[in-house]
């Protein structure tokens, strides 16, 4: 089963606050792959809003997104797009 990994920087102003984390989890849940998010050694389930919030990832944090499953490639690409678009803030 393919595993795809990518490091992303949170450039949006508020980091993974409620709204961005919601969007993150929404996108992650569209895929069947298992998605893990790592920040400074802390690894959480990228589909769980509760866990994403607990990362307390602020602007400038670097996240490693790791997906494994049939659609891993697409999942990571979609998440990267969201993060790079700064969660469409403003």
């Amino acid at each position: 089963m393919p595993t795809v990994e990518r490091e992303l920087e949170l450039k949006n102003r508020y980091g993974l606050h409620a709204r961005p984390a919601t969007l993150f989890a929404e996108v992650a849940n569209r895929y069947t792959s298992e998605i893990k998010v790592e920040k400074d050694g802390q690894v959480v389930n990228g589909k769980s809003i509760f866990e994403l919030i607990m990362l307390a990832a602020e602007q400038g944090s670097r996240l490693v997104v790791r997906a494994s499953g049939e659609d891993a490639e697409q999942a990571v690409a979609a998440i990267a797009e969201l993060v790079e678009a700064r969660f469409h803030e403003e």
Partner: peptide, 10 residues
């Protein structure tokens, strides 16, 4: 956000 909390599979 609230709706997402209620959908949290974990």
């Amino acid at each position: 956000f609230h709706e997402m909390l209620l959908r949290d599979a974990d």
